[in-house]
Amino acid sequence: MTTVKQRMLTGNKAMAEAIAIEMERNPNVFVLGEDVGKYGGIFGSTQGLIDRFGEQRVMDTPISETAFIGAAIGAAAEGMRPIVELMFVDFFGVCMDQIYNHMAKIPYMSGGNVKLPMVLMTAVGGGYSDAAQHSQTLYATFAHLPGMKVAAPSTPYDLKGMMASAIRDDNPVVFMFHKALQGLGWMDQLDAAVGEVPEGEYTVPLGKAKVVREGKDVTIVGLQMTVHYVLEAAAKLKEDGIDAEVIDLRSLVPLDRETIIESVKKTHRLVVVDEDYLSYGMTAEVSASVAEKALYDLEAPIRRIAVPDVPIPYNKKLEQFVLPNAGRIYDEVIQLMNE
């Protein structure tokens, strides 16, 4: 009889473990970014790596995002496999040229002759009063621009498995991790930030959504933090006799439209929940995809819950008012079921 050893890890420890395993497997994998060395990453994603691999492979950089993300591109073109951290996704404004004009386009402009096997990992999300310049998710901003795979896992298991896939992928991958799911001691302690993570190597594919709760009455699509809100709402809906199917998108690019459409064909109702801005965002893309492929399977209009096109406010109550939560999802589903 074999016993499977189960461990509980925080999101950030799961990510760091994936990076460590890949650095062991492949000497071309290295990490660079602000405070990724002794600090271990502001959100803990590189903790312990410098002690194991040294400062030649875990490199603290100057506060020069254009230079160090550009350097990751240049190194990737030389066959290295850099993992570069953009501390907060909100900082993309100082370096977006490198990200979308170069990282995302060089493989295409070269006719596939230049590969850029690199990971741009970055922290997203709010909920802790960090205000408008440190709380965004910006999922759609990156997902809109062709040439980058975009991953946004919601559990420690997926953070580890999808990070391994991202590092092994020959394309640029934007790996978004949610601050609240990292298990940081200096934020609210969420159960969702800790989970079972197997030791050793495994991968979780990019571009594949997961049905995290099967149901027959309504499909609720979430991403990263909102998946946990959706699951909370689904548990409460169950008490009312409503059986929700919950989909964790896990990746924005490639987007697993098939899993969504298959589910909608079963449940005939759709609610999409996003921590990004409402207009032109993920909720719009998912809704449009369902309208194109499964409009006549719907028994009621699609409902969307997202940040209502305002910057993230500082005041705690204001911030909670604009972010999605389980209560709002529950209310929307109740209304939808009564239509």
Binding site: T66, A67, F68, I69, G70, A71, A72, I73, G74, A75, A76, A77, E78, G79, M80, P82, Q98, H102
Partner: peptide, 11 residues
């Protein structure tokens, strides 16, 4: 320029 920095780093 940053791409050249990265190539130099790789070297």
């Amino acid at each position: 320029i940053p791409h050249a920095v990265g190539a130099a780093l790789a070297a």
